[in-house]
Amino acid sequence: MSTEHASSKRAYYTVFLVLLVCTYVTWQIAYFDLGPLNTLAALAIAVFKATLVVLFFMHARSSPRLTWIVIAAGLFWLGILLVLTLSDYLTRLWT
């Protein structure tokens, strides 16, 4: 049990450093003109950071399957909310 705790603590510090580096990259990359890729890059890094927090800090990695189903259901409904609404708003000017 104690070795398991020690290794999970090492993982916490590693995740922490990766999150800080990602924050720095998000901040710096915003000053380069990448066109629509700016927003895409910012969101991709944010999703990566959120995934790390969920997997390691929130222990989803070692959580029961039922927890995974709850998380997946939440993301699925968020997907419905975003995709269905935006498929209307983002395409109104299309001809």
């Binding site: 915003a30 000053y31 910012a42």
Partner: peptide
């Protein structure tokens, strides 16, 4: 998510 979406829009 709030940080890039609110603070970093069109910084370039």
């Amino acid at each position: 998510f709030l940080f890039p979406l609110l603070y970093l829009v069109g910084r370039h």
